[in-house]
Simulated scan of single mutants.
Amino acid sequence: MDGQKNGSNSLYEAIGGADTVSRLVQAFYPKVQADPSIGPLFPEDIDPVMEKQTLFLTQFFGGPPLYSDRYGHPMMRARHLPFPITPERAEAWLSCMKRALAEVGLDQQLQYAVLERLKGPAHHFVNTDE
């Protein structure tokens, strides 16, 4: 998956590249783990998840294809199928991301652009109403 491009600049470059993606993932996962609806879906050892998320978001936002280079095609919907993802859990995930984006201090327009980019996939992963 390639990130959306604005002219010649990717969203990855616009948000500040590797440093910002790393800071975003570091800010995001404590919020996820503390969330009562989605926290239990994640393993106690969150470090491998954070590493994969960093690689994925780098690629997803238009940076180097780090995730694909290491793991092959992301196939994110298939990778999420074992987990019961409801519309409410998708929204909880997005809420955690919104708070993490604010915490890392991204410009409001960039926060909006990142959330808009993530909304489609977050809702695409929904696989149950229960």
Rank of each mutant, 00 (worst) to 15 (best):
G105S: 11
A92I: 00
A92E: 02
A18E: 11
C96N: 13
R99A: 15
V32D: 05
I15G: 08
A27Y: 04
A102G: 05
A92T: 00
D47F: 02
P65N: 15
V32N: 09
E51F: 10
Q59G: 04
G72Q: 04
F28K: 05
E44S: 14
P87Q: 09
G105R: 13
Q108E: 12
P36H: 05
R23D: 15
D45A: 14
A90S: 12
R77N: 14
T86Y: 04
G62H: 02
L24E: 06
M75A: 11
F60L: 01
C96W: 03
P65M: 11
Y29W: 08
P40D: 11
A18D: 10
V114T: 00
H73W: 04
S22P: 01
I46H: 10
M75D: 08
P36W: 05
A18Y: 07
T54C: 04
S68K: 13
K31W: 03
E13N: 06
Y112L: 08
C96E: 07
L55N: 12
P36V: 06
A100W: 08
D45N: 12
G16H: 08
L94C: 09
D69N: 14
S22W: 01
H80A: 02
P48V: 07
S22L: 06
P36N: 11
P64Q: 11
Q108F: 09
R23H: 06
I15L: 11
Y67E: 02
D107C: 02
A102N: 07
E91A: 12
I85P: 03
F61H: 03
W93V: 15
P84C: 10
Y71D: 11
V32P: 03
G105I: 15
